[in-house]
Amino acid sequence: MRPLRPGQDGQPGGAFLRPAGSRPSLHAGVRRDLPGAPDFAAHPFPEPAAARTRRDPAPSRFSYRLHRLWLTPLFRTALRVGLPAYLLVFALGVVLSDEARRDAITGAWEDAWAIIEARPEFRVTGMTVEGASEPVHSALQAMGPESFPVSSFQIDLESLRADFEALDAVASANLRITSEGVLTVHVREREPAVVWRSPEGLELLDGEGHRVARLRRRAARADLPLIGGEGADRAVPEALALIETAEPLGARLRGLVRVGERRWDAVLTDGRRIQLPAQGAGSALERVIALDQSQELLQRDVALVDMRLPGRPTVRMSEEALVELRRIRALERGESNR
């Protein structure tokens, strides 16, 4: 059939379409009927060219409007961002609205987490405490995790440390889990500096006045100085400074008593007192000691040295000394009176 219809070679107008020196089409955009390379293999009998030139692509009203809608920025943003976001939230809401499904999800999560926690890499097999005395050691052992082995995820080191440091005897605790799976605790204990005779009983305090432990007998820590009185624990550094100042008094100083939570009394053996001012207590004490060293003030029969007014040191003598003094003065006057 084809030899009979030689002109119909798939191109309208036949072979003259592309002569050697032909100019390109002047209406490149318009000429929709210019065919591309004819595909003879696929279409051995192409339909008449006239039928194809009549095809005239134009967007339908609907597709034209749709295209315009799609080019509207607001619509486009809503479709590209708003719709997926809405669908995601909606789907999540639907899935999570069922109680059983929610439980299944959390259960699966917890199971997975439990498997991770139980791995040997996170296992803690024991606890060692360093730098603690025996009672503190046993107390810390009692406060630590109840049973070993335990997963390191279940040990809250921060709260454990807070618990440890809540002990009065512990100044600071340093916790870490070593790579061998041992919970190591480095403890720095509080050093008792003074014995405080508090209303409740004898207590050991450290240099800052923090309670260290209860003391049953004073004799158990006879090496530590004694302080007393209400609120004395809040002025321990000052007390320690005063005690150091009172070194020359030696064994004559029995202790310090806080008076009115404001100032100190230095109590000497056989009940004699040195009343110190609230401000400048150290220098006042030094003056007393200097007086003692120069004039042997404390060797004399003095019941009380009142240094509360720095400008007017006052001495109260004992009863017998006063009688003796009066007697001596009377004697002096009586020689002339009699």
Binding site: L4, R5, P6, G7, Q8, P12, G13, G14, A15, F16, P48, A49, A50
Partner: peptide, 15 residues
């Protein structure tokens, strides 16, 4: 010479 072609199927006319 310009070939003006045709689609009638008639050789003479189409050539």
């Amino acid at each position: 010479m310009i070939e003006i072609g045709g689609e009638t199927g008639d050789w003479e006319h189409d050539r």
